[in-house]
Design a protein around this nucleic acid. Structure first.
Lengths: 302, 302
DNA sequence: GCAGAGGCATAGGGACAGCCTATGGGTTCA
DNA sequence: TGAACCCATAGGCTGTCCCTATGCCTCTGC
């Protein structure tokens, strides 16, 4: 389902936050590089969409009404996540010079890196980063070939030739829609889970490999064919939430959904689904410069 | 600082998520009520802004590339927070019939209600809610006068005539910028804190009252005049982050900033800054219908 | 009491973005 | 071989958005 059009354009909300901070519409306009009338009109259309007065305009500035404070409070996390998104997208561009090349597994890149990159930017604002995402084998290759200064992997052991440090932990979680039969029992045997078709990513995905590896380690040789293969974590969550079937995902991916009960966790008996997320670099070459900064940041937030 | 224009319009990202879920640009376009060429072009401009190919277009659909999966993963929380924002804004409109009238303190309304409202919508989709925000006295009045079916307050005790239930806890936190002298010591005496001018909300704000109340309870009679008064939590955080001075805010407001170390927590000795967040309703009139549903949801997530 | 500064709203005009329909080219499947 | 499905391109139009210029209001300082 598409997002309501009322909130697809963030400019007005961004402007509202600036008014709250700077105390006047004109100054907020200047901060955004636009003219005062433009800002004024955008804020007015924002109020029209909200259906409530958000600003109290006086002859010496503007302040937020109670409703304005609420909207500003709700908008702030949207803008914060958008800043993460922008930081991530910036690091995807491979076309410019960069001092820091990162290779990371999808899980790390999706859930941990944007925050790290923003933190890195406050430490050394001029560091340009380039991110390559891939599975753990790919990451190891990149780092070994010195095509990446620092790697992040989610495999159980450190590839030969590399030194690693655990920066975070992850856990695979089996989730179902609240209406699913398993949601009541909240526990299922590993054999049963393995025999059930799941909604999952394509073959070769780290999460899928980890799931199959955990089953093999528990002595369960074969798992059922996927029910459906989708091309992004979000798509899988949508399918699981929609009741298509159970899915196995990273804890990082589903914790918000577990909190809102759009998805329900089902414990899998006798299966260790934990794994360490590691930073890796070539053995004997301690990271320095920006790579060292990022390593510090990543370790600190574990 | 304004948000980069690359991420101010969420339509393209929303479309990308739909492609991931539905497997083709055309179906995603249909889901958004737009024509296939429009969707196609928007996605192309999104790719241009990203500087990378996000979609692998085949003659029988489109799937996400690795970069596309990353962007989709980063965009998902933005869209989720935007959905919260929309849910909140919807509840602000006082102009239509509603079955559930909520009065809430600013802290509860800002940080807890949007999620509750979304959860409520999945339980009973047709419940229209109206939210009024104000301080705890205001909330109590609304509930006592039957102008609100359910109230949420953050005061230390339950007002006369009302019955209450604790649904969550909150804690006031003294925060400073990482460069502030206090950031090193990470602890300050209550007397010292009280004597220091803070960045704070206007008089009458619940958080400010709670801070002054905590000082009074600790036997400290007077606190310094505010350094600066701002009209929203976000504005206060921006001022504190910018090094203007220390601020006292709700834990809910700053936990993300503490995690990214844009703000540093400073413990205040000998001061109890905890408080309970309570749902309240008229004594002897147990909530029923949607109010009861919301109460259940709120309690469950404490 | 008066002038000036700062602040917001309105008006008018122009540029650009976005959308739609129509169409073409490609692939898969019966 | 034709039908179905999917994406890209072309052309034309509408509407949004932004800017400059201007007016009105309030507060402040002389």
């Amino acid at each position: 389902m598409p997002l309501p059009s009322r909130v697809t354009d963030l400019t007005g909300f961004d402007l509202l936050l600036s008014v709250a901070e700077l105390g006047s519409i004109g100054r907020a306009a200047a901060a955004h590089g636009m003219s005062q009338p433009s800002a004024s009109e955008r804020l007015r259309t924002l109020e029209a969409r909200a259906g409530v007065t958000l600003l109290e305009r006086t002859s010496r500035g503007a302040r937020l009404t109670t409703a304005g404070q609420l909207v500003a409070g709700w908008a702030a996390p949207v803008l914060a996540r958008a800043a993460d998104l922008d930081a991530g997208m910036t690091s995807l561009r491979a076309d410019r010079q960069s001092q820091l090349r990162i290779a990371a597994s999808l899980t790390v890149a999706e859930y941990l890196l944007p925050t790290w990159l923003i933190a890195l930017r406050t430490v050394s604002p001029d560091t340009a980063t380039v991110l390559t995402a891939g599975n753990s084998v790919h990451v190891a290759e990149q780092v070994l070939a010195h095509k990446a200064d620092l790697g992040f992997i989610e495999s159980t052991d450190v590839p030969a030739g590399l030194t690693g440090r655990v920066v975070a932990t992850d856990e695979l979680v089996l989730v179902v829609a609240p209406g699913h039969p398993w949601a009541k029992r909240r526990r299922v045997t590993a054999v049963r889970a393995a025999a059930t078709p799941l909604v999952s990513r394509e073959p070769g995905s780290g999460t899928r490999q980890a799931w199959e590896h955990a089953l093999t380690s528990a002595g369960i040789s074969s798992s059922a064919e996927p029910l459906l293969e989708m091309s992004s974590t979000t798509a899988i969550k949508a399918a699981a939430t929609g009741g298509i079937g159970p899915a196995v995902l990273s804890m990082h991916a589903v914790e918000a959904d577990l909190a809102t009960r759009t998805l329900v966790r089902v414990e899998v008996s006798d299966l260790d689904l934990h794994r360490a997320l590691r930073a890796v670099w070539p053995a004997g070459r301690t990271p320095r410069g920006p790579a060292s900064d990022l390593l510090t940041i990543a370790t600190r937030r574990s």
